[in-house]
Design a protein around this nucleic acid. Structure first.
Lengths: 337, 337
DNA sequence: CCGCGTTGTGCACGCGCGTGCAATCAAAAT
DNA sequence: ATTTTGATTGCACGCGCGTGCACAACGCGG
C-alpha cells in the first residue's frame, strides 16, 4: 500500500496491440520451439520489453496442463544432508525451467495433505524425500491422487508404482563392507535409522550378510529413531552404556553421516574415546561436515547432482519412467575408518 | 504411462451435478467464510468426497489474484542455519495455508530471474533470505517487478521499499558485547561475513563501538567471504597465520554460528588451541550444532518461528507492512565464551 | 397473512493463455 | 507467369474458478 501505483502487469494482448500482431503470435514468441519469423519476433520482444511483459505461468499451466512445478515433500529437517539435496535439486531443476514447491510434511497433519495440495496446484511431479515414508503411504498416494508423477528420491521404494531415483545401496554398501573388512576389525555394529517398512533396510542387510559370509559372524545392530545427529548421540550413548566394556564394538557402520556424526560426538564426549584410535566409524552421503577436520569421516558419496539431473529428465518426460533408477557413487576414505 | 487409467480429476461442475446444486455452490462450500446452509454443505461435501474432488488452485489463483504462494529466494546453502529457517518457514507458512516456492538464486543467473518467475507465478510475496543481496538489487526488484510483496527475512535492509523481518541486531549485539566484556577479555576480534552494502554491518558496528566506548580500544575485525563454516575455517587459518603470536585475539566474536563453528575448528585443528581454554568464541543464531558437545557455543538465539509467524501475517495482510519488524531473541550462554 | 430482514443460491463475465486447425504469405518450382 | 510447398499467423474454444449482484427461500413480529 505504501509503494508505487503499480499498474497491472501487461498481458499478451497489450503487447500484441503495441506490436501490431495477434495475441497468439505474442505468446508464441515466448515459446522456444515457436515458428515465427525473425522480424516479427524482434518486434514482439521489443514491445514486450517496453511493457515489461512476461507470460503468466498460472494461465499457461491452467490451459496446458503443464505447470513446470515439482513439489518436494520433506519430513526430516534434522539431517543436514537435506540441505545439500535441496541445493542440488533447486539448482538442477531450476536449470531445466522447473520450479520447486517445498513442503514440510512433518508439520503437515499428513503427507496426504501435501499430496492433495500438490494435485491442486497441478504439479508435474511430487518428489518424496522423507524418511518416515511407508510404502503403504506411497501406494495409497499413487492410488488416490491424480498426481502426474510420484517419485521417491534418494531412497529405494519397493513400491513398484512409484519411480525411485537412488544410489544402488547394495553395491555401495558392498564396497563399504569390503573396506571395513580390510580394516581388520572384529566386532562391528551397524547403526540403522528409522525402520520403515521400506527397502531402506538394504544397507543394513547388505552389510550384515556381507560381513557374515566373509567372517562367519553376524554383526550386531542398533536402531536410531531418526536421522538426527543429536538423537543419534543420545541413543548411542544410552546403548553403549548398557554394553559391557568387553563387548564393545570396534567399528560402527552407520546408515548415514547424520548418525555417524552423532556417534562420533557421543564416543568422544560421553566416553572419552578417540575415533579412529579406539573405534572406527563410517557414514554414508558425504555431507560437507564429513570432510571437516573434526570428523574426517569415511563415507560413501552419492552423486546427488546426477540424480537430480535424472529427476529432471523424468519430470520432463525425457527419460523412461522405469520403476527404478540406481546410481553408483564412490567410497570416500578418510581417517575415521 | 505404466499405471492406472487415471481419470481426469473431477471439477466443481461434476460435483455440482452429483449433489444437485450449482457449480458456484460447490466452490463456495470449500471456502471457510462461505454462506451456505449446513444441509447443502453436507451434501456437497459428500459428493465431493465420492468424486475425490479438490478445488483447482491454479484456476482459483488465476481468477482471484491470490495464489497463496510465497517464493523464498536463497543463495547460500552452505550455512546450516538455512535448514533451520526452511523448516520453520515451511512449517509456519504451511500452517497458514501458504505454499512455499524455493528458489536457488546462486545458480540462477540472476536474482532478477527468480523475481521474474515469482511474478509470473503470481506469488503473494517474494522473500529474500540470501546473503549476497545488495540493497541496489532490492530496490531495483521492487521498482521493476509487479510482485505483491517484497520481504527481506532475517536480514536488515536499509532499503525502505522492502519490508524487513529480522532480529534487532543492535540490541542483540549489545547484549553479546556486555557478556563478552564481562568475560574479562582484552583483545577481541570481530569476524564478519560477506560485506554487502547493506545494514548487516550493524552487528559489527554495534560490537566495535560498544567495545570501544567501554574500553577505549577499537577491536580488530576480519572479513570472511561467505557464511560457510569451511570457508571460515580456511580464512581464519590464513589470517591467524599472518598474525604475530603476541597479537593474537583472546576472544573472537563471530557474526554468526557458521563462522564461529569454522573458527573453532580452525583453532583446534590448525593451531591446536582449546576453546574456551585458550580463546573464547561467540556466534549468532543458535544453530543446532551450537549446542553440540563439540562446540558448546555461546550465541544469540533468533526467534525464528515467531519471525516466520510475522512473515505469514504480513503475507496474509493481517499485519501492517511497516518497513521494519524487529524481534528480540535471547543470549544463550554456553562454554565457548 | 403480509412485509421485511436474513440467509442461501444461481449466474454473466472474466482471469491469461494453449491447442489444433484454417487462412495467409513468401519463396521455390514448373 | 502460375503453381506448389512450407513457413507464418490468426482464431474459436476451453482450462476451472472468483466476483459482484440478482433472485429465491427462510424466519420473524405485527
Amino acid at each position: 500500500m505504501a509503494s508505487t501505483p503499480k499498474s497491472k502487469p501487461a498481458t499478451a494482448e497489450d503487447v500484441a496491440e503495441l506490436a501490431g500482431v495477434s495475441r497468439w503470435t505474442v505468446n508464441r514468441a515466448f515459446k522456444k520451439d515457436a515458428s515465427i519469423s525473425k522480424r516479427t519476433l524482434d518486434r514482439v520482444m521489443k514491445a514486450a520489453a517496453r511493457l515489461d511483459y512476461a507470460p503468466d505461468l498460472l494461465a499457461a499451466s491452467l490451459a496446458s496442463d503443464r505447470s513446470n512445478l515439482v513439489s518436494l515433500l520433506i519430513d526430516d529437517f534434522a539431517n543436514p544432508h537435506k540441505l545439500v539435496m535441496l541445493e542440488a535439486l533447486t539448482r538442477v531443476l531450476g536449470a531445466h525451467g522447473l520450479d520447486v514447491l517445498l513442503v514440510n510434511t512433518a508439520s503437515q497433519k499428513d503427507t496426504q495433505d501435501a499430496l492433495r495440495t500438490a494435485r491442486q496446484r497441478r504439479v508435474d511431479a511430487a518428489v518424496l524425500i522423507g524418511s518416515q515414508l511407508s510404502d503403504d503411504l506411497i501406494a495409497q498416494a499413487k492410488g488416490t491422487d491424480h498426481i502426474g508423477k510420484l517419485i521417491v528420491f534418494a531412497r529405494l521404494s519397493s513400491e513398484v508404482q512409484a519411480v525411485s531415483i537412488c544410489v544402488d545401496d547394495r553395491s555401495a554398501m558392498a564396497v563399504m563392507t569390503d573396506h571395513v573388512l580390510s580394516g581388520g576389525y572384529s566386532r562391528p555394529l551397524f547403526l540403522a535409522g528409522p525402520q520403515t517398512r521400506s527397502a531402506h533396510l538394504l544397507r543394513q542387510q547388505t552389510f550384515v550378510e556381507g560381513w557374515q559370509s566373509a567372517t562367519g559372524f553376524r554383526p550386531e545392530d542398533h536402531v536410531v529413531g531418526s536421522y538426527d545427529p543429536r538423537q543419534a548421540y543420545r541413543q548411542v550413548t544410552s546403548f553403549l552404556k548398557g554394553c559391557p566394556e568387553d563387548s564393545w564394538p570396534d567399528v560402527i557402520v552407520c546408515e548415514n553421516d547424520a548418525l555417524a556424526v552423532g556417534t562420533i560426538d557421543a564416543l568422544r564426549h560421553e566416553f572419552g574415546r578417540n575415533v579412529p584410535g579406539d573405534l572406527a566409524v563410517t557414514g554414508f552421503d558425504d555431507t560437507p561436515q564429513a570432510a571437516d577436520q573434526s570428523y574426517q569421516l569415511t563415507t560413501y558419496r552419492q552423486p546427488i547432482s546426477a540424480m537430480a539431473e535424472a529427476l529432471a529428465q523424468v519430470v520432463l518426460g525425457q527419460r523412461d519412467e522405469v520403476g527404478l533408477d540406481r546410481f553408483t557413487g564412490e567410497l570416500v576414505i578418510r581417517r575415521s575408518a
